[in-house]
Amino acid sequence: MFLVLGGCSHIGPGSVAVDRFDYSSAVADSWKQQTLLNIVKLRYLDMPVFVDVASVVAGYSLETGGSLGGQVSSADAVQGNSVLLGASSKYTDRPTITYVPLTGERFLTGLVTPIDPKKIFGLLQSGYAADFILGLTVDSLNGVRNRSAVAGTVREADPEFLQVLQLLREIQVAGAVGMRVEEDKSKGQIALLFMRSNDITPDIQAKQKMLRGLLHMPEDRQQFVLRYSPVRGEADELAVSSRSLLQILTAFSSYVDVPQEHIEDRSALPAFREGEASSARAQIHILSGKDKPRHAYVAVFYRDYWYWIEDSNLAAKRALGAVMLFFTLAETSGNEKAPLITIPAQ
């Protein structure tokens, strides 16, 4: 009976429904933790290290066996009749997970190279909020500077930049701004930012005019070529000084609540000066403490302290998710010949 049951059962199909989601959740959670850990490490001037999960091979085996024995004795035998039953089973779950350390020239280049402005504004075209995406990925627009955190020094954004983000968001919601990519025989693909002038309300037209004034863009033009540049270019261009992934991570690290003892022993970069960036700090805040948090969206342990993002902090959760998305946009694929670390989990 046991031999028949063992030959007819299938454990593979039933494991798909469970393992697919369990492994997906585990990889996603570890990715969030790895990203947060590297953000925290940058406040300590520690090198960020990324390890990718290259493959997960789940191996299962089910062994069953049974035995049936007995003895029939004669009428005058000392021992009587007997029946012996036996059964055994063995279940083994032995996944093999392969990790790939992201190293090499291609990875480092992707880490420090500014993200293509075409990709950034492509996210806006896909529906992402302009003020949120540009606030994380852009250092300046036509020379109007965003908030920056470099080597422990925090430079606040120009007031005009904050107005630009707000106006862009309102114009985006009204559907009066967009982007398209065109082919140029001599220049290849070029990205064009255009402002729609037809079928829009006078209020949106006034905001478009105000936006052009803040960015020093001519009022009679409806489309502008997106160019990477830290300074303002030609009249028909919108100069975008985009950030690299490393710059985005560094800017994010300025919101880490570093323990006071680490500030005093100078093992970490200084925290905010009092009153500095209070509005941004209230929105994006990475907490720290000795005890493991109970209601954290993601938490990591580093240098005897826990660092975490509260599950109720929607702005910080959205920003962390965006950083993970930017990691993909930055083309940080490791070297194909990178070493593999394979750990059998038994």
Rank of each mutant, 00 (worst) to 15 (best):
C8L: 15
F121Q: 01
P95Y: 02
G233Y: 05
D220Q: 06
S82R: 13
N38Y: 06
I341W: 05
D93R: 00
S140T: 06
F132Y: 12
M47C: 11
D184L: 00
Y128G: 00
H295E: 12
T342D: 02
V57I: 15
T64D: 03
D139L: 05
R94Y: 13
L226I: 04
Y255V: 03
T113Q: 07
R212L: 14
Q260M: 12
D257Q: 14
E63D: 13
Q222L: 10
I263G: 00
D22E: 08
I286N: 04
E276G: 01
V51W: 07
G188Y: 04
N142M: 02
S197R: 14
T109M: 14
V83M: 14
L167T: 07
P230Y: 10
F224K: 06
T250W: 02
P230N: 10
Y44K: 00
L68Y: 11
Q346S: 14
S89G: 10
V164M: 07
S279G: 06
A129P: 00
D291W: 01
E183M: 11
L62T: 09
L62E: 06
A206Q: 11
A296Q: 04
K32L: 15
V138A: 07
D291S: 13
F21A: 14
I248M: 14
E336T: 02
D139C: 01
N38I: 06
K119N: 02
I115T: 09
A235F: 07
V177F: 02
I204C: 03
G233E: 08
A17T: 11
I39V: 15
A271R: 11
P344C: 07
S312P: 00
P117V: 09
L68S: 09
H285P: 01
V231A: 10
G143L: 05
F161Y: 15
L214R: 00
L314N: 06
R106G: 12
K290L: 15
A174I: 08
K118V: 05
M47Y: 11
Y44H: 09
A191E: 03
P270N: 10
R196K: 12
L84Y: 05
D76R: 06
V83D: 02
E63F: 08
A191Y: 05
A299F: 02
A176H: 04
Y128P: 00
L123C: 03
R196E: 13
G6R: 02
T328Y: 09
L45I: 08
V56T: 09
W308S: 03
R243L: 14
G7P: 00
D139S: 13
L168E: 02
I284F: 15
V164Y: 02
T103F: 01
Q189Y: 03
G6S: 09
L36S: 08
A174C: 07
R106H: 12
A75F: 15
G66Q: 04
R196F: 05
D291F: 05
G127T: 10
K41Q: 15
I11S: 10
